[in-house]
Amino acid sequence: MKVTVKNWHAIAQWRWDTGTNEDEGDGEGDVCGICRVPYEGCCPSCKMPGDDCPLIWGECSHVFHMHCLLQWIGTAASKQQCPMDRRPWVTAERKVNHSNGR
């Protein structure tokens, strides 16, 4: 017997590749350290999640909603530091093959 798939309407859920292993747990519960909203949600000033409210990766391995972090960096008190570890904030370069790495 040969099975041919003619048309498959599937349901999938997207998630940000934050480096944690997808298969461990369900990947939910990872929240932005600034607004405490899940990465897959959106920052308080946004209404649409996903590409409209992207994440930002730091060299220090911390990940935030981009809008949250930019707002933080914009304040004088931030001294351009990562809010988690107080190291100077350096945005990491993300590469396509990066996601397969860690």
Binding site: M1, K2, V3, T4, V5, K6, N7, W8, H9, A10, I11, A12, Q13, W14, R15, W16, D17, E22, G27, G50, D51, P54, L55, R94, K95, V96, H98, S99
Partner: peptide
Amino acid sequence: KPDKRLRWLPQLGSIKLELTL
């Protein structure tokens, strides 16, 4: 979308198959 990954919800959806017997 390099920053995103997909997680399938396999129990949902439907599929149209053709079986060649």
